[in-house]
């Protein structure tokens, strides 16, 4: 037993002695009290007799319905769902009139059952599969890439245009003349468009002049 603080009643150890609950070192003290102190010896006898009386109290048998009964445990769910034979239902109903624990267990089960049954119904997701067998990945037609401008041909055309314009400006008799005539513009236009493949490089006026 754990150490205890001294009690003002020095005879407390007598009860502890009777109960086998003395702390270390108290046994010698009790033996000394009982052998040397008549008052302690008389107190010891009184306490001992009282303890005997208390221990002699008869065990009180609880009513039969309280403990000596079969509880229904797992079968309470089947009872709730109406899945038990009639005779078992009758005995459960009778049992429930007295057994608070089974009644509470039944209520808990019922609450759980109601909670599950009260879950809202969900609509199936709208998904319409394509008619016919689904094509495999290998047979799927190649997707056309969106048209994109290609930067390299544009850059080459720009460089070519600049080079042609520079050459014309050098070879032209009016190269030093800043005045731009209509024929110059037409020539420049032909030069610009001539770099485009398949384009009729010669305007109608040129054809008419040349034999």
């Amino acid at each position: 037993m754990a150490a205890v603080t001294p009690d003002p009643d020095r005879f407390v150890v007598l009860s502890a002695y009777l109960d086998g609950e003395l702390a270390d070192g108290e046994l010698d003290m009790v033996i000394g009290m009982l052998s040397d102190d008549p008052e302690a010896a008389a107190e010891f006898r009184r306490i001992r007799d009282m303890k005997r009386l208390l221990r002699a109290l008869p065990t009180v048998e609880p009513p039969g319905w309280l403990l000596d009964v079969e509880h229904y445990g797992d079968r309470l769910s089947a009872y709730l769902d109406g899945e038990l034979p009639t005779e078992e239902v009758t005995s459960i109903v009778h049992h429930l009139t007295t057994c608070r624990v089974c009644r509470e267990e039944l209520h808990d089960l019922d609450r759980s059952r109601i909670a599950v049954r009260a879950l809202p119904g969900l609509d199936a997701p709208r998904f319409v599969p394509p008619p016919g067998p689904r094509p495999s990945a290998s047979s799927e037609p190649e997707r056309r890439r969106p048209h994109r401008l290609r930067p390299r041909p544009i850059a080459a055309a720009t460089i070519g245009l600049v080079a042609v314009l520079a050459l014309l400006s050098i070879l032209s008799p009016s190269a030093s003349d800043p005045t731009i005539t209509m024929s110059d513009l037409e020539a420049r236009h032909i030069a610009r468009v001539s770099i485009e493949p398949g384009f009729n490089v010669l305007p109608a006026s040129v054809e008419a002049v040349d034999p």
Binding site: V4, D7, D9, V12, A16, R46, I47, D49, M50, L53
Partner: peptide, 25 residues
């Protein structure tokens, strides 16, 4: 409650009971 209090209560309880039961023991 502390075990010392338990010990004291048991002893004093028995003494009180003994005093209530007046027939000789």
């Amino acid at each position: 409650i502390p075990v010392g209090t338990v010990r004291s209560r048991i002893h004093r309880g028995r003494k009180m009971l003994r005093e209530m039961l007046t027939w000789p023991l």
